[in-house]
Design a protein around this nucleic acid. Structure first.
Lengths: 219, 219
DNA sequence: ACCTGAACACCGTTCAAGT
DNA sequence: ACCTGAACACCGTTCAAGT
């Protein structure tokens, strides 16, 4: 009679876990089933391990979130920024920031409200702000550019994937909002490239700050 | 000997709960201790009731969130929009949208990712989009204005209260980001009125779309 | 050092029992 | 109709026991 294999106890000969593969598995779960599906149990199961094992490698949920952030941020272009003027730097940074999060829209909701606490993300901000600093931007305005850009990029990336769910045409109709319903349907019909919309907003955004600087310079 | 009062069982002579006071208590908890503190237990305790009682009045968490949304949205100006042109409508709507959420920054993170399912919110969108519709805006572009405006308003309102927490100058310093740290410190020193920053962004935003329309009209 | 099962204090939600 | 305690299946996290 075959006896069911007993679960091995104690330390395995080769470690199954690492910060790296934990972060990757976490991001996979977020991408596939949303942030709410990322429980310690689900994460452990995907890694063929029990939940308590995770605590030998990460400190808890907050730590886990910042590992996921570092993974996404690593896809953002920062090296070339040092050799560009502020307009080009803003465009390059904005586009790659947008693309990085467009690939992981489900991560946005949790990352946008968790305090930043990982080196990769600080270095990303530093690279972009240094470009503005070299161009002589004041602190207030430089941070406004950064924050405004983040809102547009994160908003557009989230919107591209989740707008159908947040604002549904049929529910709009049912709640006495025919104009909204008409607009929502017209958009989904045209089915435009979502990236085009962001490129458009990014252009407007840069032009807006450029014209302000030109006015200030000529006065 | 005084005997401890036994807890009353069964239906009380006058009902303790209603959708209204549940929603208000929920918003109070969110304002005071953040969204994560809004558990059914905490909510019930504040209303002098046990958690299961809530389910006689609300269907669950999703329902509760939309009740809170309706409460906040009720503070947004919509009546005057019908008599304004699109620029003024955008300014009035944007400002009151911003102010409504500035008063409840902790609600933003959950509301911005929960599908909209309450009449008050649909009616708010309808009022604003009707103003753009009357001005002849195309569906794509009108939704871009709405969505862009929401990001700027929600972002600024959240930022005004939580930016210290999200991006901390000392942590920036510790992670090798001196330019970011310098900018963050310069801003907190100047301590400008947060509303001024949003007014500035809102002006820029409207001008951005206006110049685009003017170009399109003259071609 | 690193994985495990057992245990703890919590969750949201259901439901029969009470008035 | 509406509030209650008990119960259910989950959470994240801690910790002693194993190798």
């Amino acid at each position: 009679m075959a006896v069911s294999q007993p679960v091995k106890r104690g330390r395995p000969s080769t470690a199954k876990l690492s910060e790296q593969n934990i972060a990757e598995a976490a991001l996979d779960i977020i991408d596939e089933r949303g942030w709410s599906a990322l429980t310690m149990n689900a994460l452990a199961t995907r890694l063929n391990v029990r939940a308590p094992s995770l605590y030998h490698h990460i400190e808890g949920q907050h730590d886990l979130i910042n590992l996921v952030r570092a993974l996404i941020v690593s896809e953002i272009e920062t090296e070339s920024l040092a050799s560009l003027d502020w307009e080009e730097a803003t465009r390059v940074f904005g586009m790659s920031y947008y693309r990085a999060f467009l690939a992981h829209p489900n991560a946005i909701q949790i990352l946008s409200v968790t305090p930043i606490d990982d080196r990769a993300t600080f270095q990303m901000y530093e690279a972009f702000l240094s470009a503005l600093d070299r161009a002589g931007w004041a602190a207030e305005r430089a941070l406004e550019v950064l924050v405004g850009l983040e809102y547009l990029a994160l908003g557009s990336a989230y919107e591209a994937n989740a707008s159908e769910m947040m604002l549904n045409a049929q529910r709009a109709e049912d709640n006495g909002a025919p104009v909204l319903a008409k607009f929502l349907r017209a958009r989904s019909d045209s089915d435009s490239l979502v990236e085009e919309v962001f490129v458009h907003l990014l252009d407007d955004f840069i032009r807006m700050f450029k014209s302000e600087r030109d006015r200030a310079a000529s006065s």
